[in-house]
């Protein structure tokens, strides 16, 4: 990383800011990756969807629970069974218990949640209860 020392001499904090920016973009990236599973969140007017990649995990080993507006996704990645005397040559996949809490933009009720697992991709769709939908307010003419 190169930091210009001559440009923008009028701003004494420019260098510090650019260093902080680099720190933000690179330094924390490794820590972010420790979170499992990575989730993508999709939003719409009537529902929210959470997708996560959980390859090799049996649907029965995944637990999804909702309390008010917090959804907790937990489970266990089981280590592969290997025979006696086998030698590991490469081990990149992780295993162990995991748990992740995700805050929803509204309080959800259990009966409005649908979860589906397809080829190792989990998809949770949470319908927005009617009472939490934003109300449109008409402006009356004076």
């Amino acid at each position: 990383m190169l930091y210009p020392t001559l440009t923008r001499r009028s701003d004494p904090f420019a260098l510090m800011r650019s260093m902080l920016r680099d720190l933000d973009s690179n330094f924390w990236a490794a820590a972010d990756r420790a979170v499992f599973p990575a989730v993508n969140i999709w939003q719409g007017a009537d529902a929210i969807a959470i997708t996560a990649e959980l390859p090799g995990i049996d649907a029965g080993d995944i637990e999804i629970s909702v309390k008010d507006d917090v959804l907790v996704l937990s489970g266990e990645r089981k280590a592969p069974q290997v025979s006696e005397g086998a030698r590991w040559q490469r081990r990149e996949r992780g295993f162990g218990r995991f748990s992740r809490a995700i805050r929803l933009p509204f309080a959800a009720s259990d009966d409005k949640i649908e979860a589906r697992m397809t080829n190792g991709v989990l998809r949770i769709v949470i319908a927005r209860p009617e009472e939490t939908k934003p109300r449109k307010i008409e402006i009356k003419a004076a």
């Binding site: 090799g56 592969p80 086998a86 030698r87 590991w88 081990r91 990149e92 996949r93 080829n119 190792g120």
Partner: peptide
């Protein structure tokens, strides 16, 4: 894909994570 490779006397087993692939 993240890969595990195990070698045993009879051969080699590989496990590759490819979520979303049928």
């Amino acid at each position: 894909p993240l890969t595990d490779i195990v070698e045993h006397d009879a051969g080699v087993s590989m496990m590759l994570e490819m979520p979303g692939v049928g």
